[in-house]
Write a protein that binds this DNA or RNA. Structure first.
Length: 503
RNA sequence: GUGCCCGUAGCUCAAUCGGUAGAGCGCCUGACUGUGGAUCAGGAGGUCGUGGGUUCAAUCCCCAUCGGGCACCCCA
């Protein structure tokens, strides 16, 4: 027999772990519900178009996509786009703010590693119509509270602010595309210690001799005129732009940016230098904030985003998020391109990312919403939360497990009746189906770490009693039904510790 | 997407410098039909991840592929 393996990056969740996952999932959703977040569920299959514009090149390349019956489809790589799509389609008549929660699988074609799978579960929220800074603080503190509810004790929170960066870039008078490039390069700047200006020069500049014609031709034309001209030109020369993943318009647009890059070089370099400085700032709020303030003052840059950020940090304290576990990081960028304001990530004690989120005030309009609506949200990677040790203390169920053994075939019906009654009393009960003798049942129950065995024989059937055996202490007593519940409750803690000592 | 490491029974691992494989644990059965969580005996389970190449001969050497892991990149 040849076996069929699981598809790469996919993972089987076996009983002990799956139970933990369900438990933490329930706990977290319950906490979110207490905070007014209503659960919704959405299809994991979407039109590919939903992800094309705003997701970011990095993540778009990781989307599972295919055509089926002439439709271009995709497995969702994240929830936010779907939730907002559904909001635009169904919930725009609801009073704002709207607090929504979700939980379900997403797919990303990435190289698998420990706790990194191609299918994983995102559990998260969207707060639609909630402006900064209050909604930001609510959502961040909720992300922390959720982790604690799931049993993750050690974690750290990193907070950045893309809006701040965007405002600075905007003041440099750059095109939207160049701004995007700057934002995307933020994190790389910091980690690789490259001057942002150097990188951009390399990327944006083109040797004029390699150009097919004089860039000066485009001067005085606006973008639309220039694009039309370039498209016509391509046609004249006989260049076919219709293959590959990009549309002819996109290709021309890109070319246009390159041709005009020199116009922007000066402004670009200035903005890049400032951003490089900013992205280096990282540390506890009380250390990082003064640095940012001085830097911006020195350069005479005015930005409301900084005051908003300060307000956010104050509110986090009000929500009970310990300042000691907050790292302010202006180099934090995140791969999703729709963020417009605060962004944050949460890591466990081994620096594994458990959670990510941020503010995306433009996304609802981008997806066709009737009017601009601020929104903020986050999502956990549930398998990672699980790997961080969540739910490990949820072994309470074990102490309520009981195995029931019938001595002979004739005793089995009564054994089934006893099992049913015990279940009604809240025990987790199995009844032997293999017809093992009592010794075999004892052996089996011990191997499974089941704390109690009930033996049903001729005498028990006759007296309508049961034999209650504590497998940890090997004590055994004949009991009527009414004795059992009280006994089990009292002996629960003792037997648990006894079992642990035995192992 | 880049660079590495790994793949023998359900699990943990041996062995064969190229001659088609073993142990422990686990599982099943029996000794043993109301109490050996023990002990003993027996049994099942492998086309050595898969496919191709080299060879008289491949689990071993080569290539590809699939799966696992690590460091980047990125994210949850």
């Amino acid at each position: 027999m040849t076996t069929v393996e699981a598809v790469r990056g996919m993972r089987d969740l076996m009983p002990p772990e799956q139970e933990r996952k369900l438990v933490i999932q329930a706990k977290c959703l319950a906490l979110l519900a207490q905070n007014g977040y209503a659960p919704l569920d959405l299809p994991l299959l979407e039109y590919r178009d939903l992800y094309l514009r705003k997701l970011g090149e990095e993540l778009v390349g990781k989307v599972y996509e295919f055509t089926f019956e002439g439709r271009n489809l995709a497995l969702r790589p994240e929830w936010t786009a779907s939730v907002l799509r559904a909001y635009v389609a169904q919930l725009q008549d609801q009073p704002l703010p709207l607090r929504l929660s979700y939980c379900g699988p997403v797919f990303r074609y990435e190289r698998p590693q420990r706790s990194t799978y191609r299918q994983f579960t995102q559990l998260g929220v969207e707060l639609i119509g909630g402006p900064a800074p209050r909604a930001d603080a609510e959502v961040i503190s909720l992300a922390c509270a959720g982790l604690e509810a799931m049993g993750v004790k050690d974690y750290s929170l990193t907070v950045g602010h893309l809006g701040l960066m965007r405002q600075i870039i905007a003041q440099a008078g750059l095109t939207e595309r160049t701004r995007g490039l700057l934002v995307r390069s933020l994190e790389r700047m910091r980690t690789q210690k490259v001057r942002m200006g150097d990188l951009l020069q390399a990327q944006m500049q083109m040797d004029p001799s390699e150009l097919p014609f004089e860039p000066d031709l485009l001067r005085g034309l606006d973008d639309a005129q220039a694009t039309t001209m370039l498209l016509r030109l391509a046609q004249e020369i006989g260049v076919n732009l219709s293959y590959g993943t990009r549309s002819p318009e996109a290709i021309v647009d890109r070319l246009l940016r390159k041709l005009r890059a020199t116009d922007q070089t000066v402004a670009l370099t200035k903005a890049a230098e400032l951003l490089t400085e900013l992205s280096q700032i990282q540390g506890l709020p009380r250390e990082a904030l003064p640095q940012v303030t001085t830097l911006l003052q020195d350069l005479g840059v005015e930005t409301p985003a900084l005051r908003e950020f300060e307000a956010l940090l104050d509110l986090l304290t009000a929500h009970g998020v310990s300042e000691e576990r907050i790292v302010v990081d202006f180099g934090l960028a995140r791969g999703l391109h729709y963020y417009t304001g605060m962004i944050f990530e949460i890591y466990d004690s081994h620096a594994m990312q458990l959670c990510g989120g941020g503010r995306y005030d433009d996304l609802i309009t981008a997806l066709g919403g009737r009017k601009a609506t601020p929104a903020v949200g986050f999502a956990y990677g549930l398998e990672r939360v699980l790997a961080a040790g969540a739910g490990e203390e949820e072994t309470a169920g074990r102490s309520k497990e009981v195995a029931v053994a019938a001595v002979t075939e004739a005793d089995y019906p009564y054994a089934v009746e006893v099992a049913k009654w015990l279940r009604g009393e809240g025990f987790r009960v199995t009844c032997d189906v293999r017809g093992r003798n009592v010794a075999g049942n004892i052996r089996d129950a011990v191997k499974r770490d089941i704390p109690y065995l009930v033996v049903i024989g001729e005498a028990e059937v006759a007296n309508r009693t049961l034999v209650w055996r504590n497998l940890a202490t090997r004590e055994e007593q004949s009991l009527g039904f009414h004795d059992v519940v009280a006994l089990a409750t009292v002996s629960k803690l003792q037997s648990e510790t006894a079992l642990k000592d035995n192992h």
